[in-house]
């Protein structure tokens, strides 16, 4: 582990559930383990992709890493600082080197402020540049995100989705971060715009020596962007490794299911009935005990429901299958 910029050690975040009348009637638990023991590290100028379906806790991981929500337990160490033990002014000062891009295109774009005011504010949060310096930087930022300077006098609601994303990016870059958590940066955009933004993010990473935690449900884009990929399922990382490995020779049945569903959706010749028997999954279900994925797992079904998969005492740990390739499954695919 040479020179890791970010280290996440057994991070847990449990939300207390508001117990409404309906929740009580259904006998729901009082605690939701959104993130349930996540560990990984990220090196300087590296991109780690975090994939998973909605509700798997990937966004919460991103927010907890940046100290936007407190962790229940575990550690996050960023550039030698233990984020999980920090607060107040020191944490605020550290935000000049770590930033977040939100899925919501409007996040951070105050609807009552002009674009120029938004960028100026971001430039002056951590530094005290002169007016001339500020103006120079604003134009530099617009250049970096490939926008024309006539946008400066406009308000956020006058911008298109792609332009909003670029301004959001410029706002984040204005503080000069080394590390950015990008939470679904393309999912709210049209396909043609998505490609522009992906290209832009890759350029920026090169030019500004950035490190990314790239959170997305889109496997193709994650694979394209990332060096390493971690796959999350219900609060846990179930597989992690080099991106080519994860997408082409996955070991965890869930990763495989994610991939096949992407291909199946488009494949005209797919045999629906046969497909659901082989690599299909059932609709979302909460785990009872043991492996979280067992209720939906095709391997578990095919192997005749082995007891070890649902044994409460033996939830599969994340084991190293080969160098740098980790998988949490009793029956990894080869």
């Amino acid at each position: 582990m040479s020179e890791s910029l970010l280290e996440v050690i057994d991070l847990k975040k449990h939300f207390r559930q508001r117990r409404g009348l309906f929740a009580n009637l259904r006998g729901a638990e009082g605690v939701i383990p959104a993130v349930d023991g996540v560990s990984f590290y990220l090196k300087e100028q590296e991109t780690v992709g975090l994939v998973g379906e909605s509700g798997c806790g990937k966004t919460t991981v991103g927010k907890t890493i940046l100290g936007l929500t407190g962790a229940t337990s575990g550690k996050v160490i960023f550039a030698g600082h233990e984020i999980t033990a920090m607060g107040g002014e020191p944490l605020r000062a550290l935000r000049s080197s770590m930033q977040m891009i939100f899925q919501d295109l409007d996040a951070g774009l105050n609807p009552k402020m002009r674009i120029e005011q938004i960028l100026r504010e971001a430039l002056t949060v951590h530094h005290r540049p002169s007016d001339a310096e500020c103006a120079r930087r604003i134009h530099e930022l617009l250049d970096q995100v490939k926008l024309k300077s006539n946008k400066l006098s406009q308000y956020p609601h006058e911008l298109s989705g792609g332009e909003k994303r670029r301004i959001g990016l410029a706002r984040v870059l204005a503080v000069g971060p080394r590390f950015i958590v990008a939470d679904e940066p393309t999912s709210a955009l049209d396909v043609s715009i998505q490609a522009q933004v992906v290209n832009l993010l890759r350029d920026l990473q090169q030019d500004l020596a950035l490190s990314f935690l790239f959170i997305s449900h889109d496997l193709r884009i994650v694979e394209l962007m990332s060096h390493k990929v971690a796959v999350m399922y219900l609060g846990k990382i179930v597989e992690m490794g080099v991106s080519e490995r994860i997408s082409h020779r996955p070991a965890h049945p869930y990763t495989r299911v994610l991939w096949t569903s992407l291909v199946e959706k488009q494949n005209r010749e797919a045999q629906p009935a046969a497909a659901s028997g082989a690599w299909g999954v059932f609709d979302f279900e909460r785990p009872s005990a043991g492996c979280r994925f067992a209720p939906r797992c095709p391997v578990y079904q095919a192997a005749g429901r082995p007891a070890i998969c649902t044994d409460a005492a033996s939830e599969p740990p994340l084991r190293e299958l080969s160098s740098g390739h980790y998988c949490a499954c009793h029956f990894p695919l080869s």
């Binding site: 379906e53 299911v257 994610l258 096949t260 569903s261 992407l262 199946e264 629906p272 999954v281 609709d283």
Partner: peptide
Amino acid sequence: LDATIQSKIVDL
């Protein structure tokens, strides 16, 4: 919908 569910709905 989630990717795995999407493909199931398309199947259907």
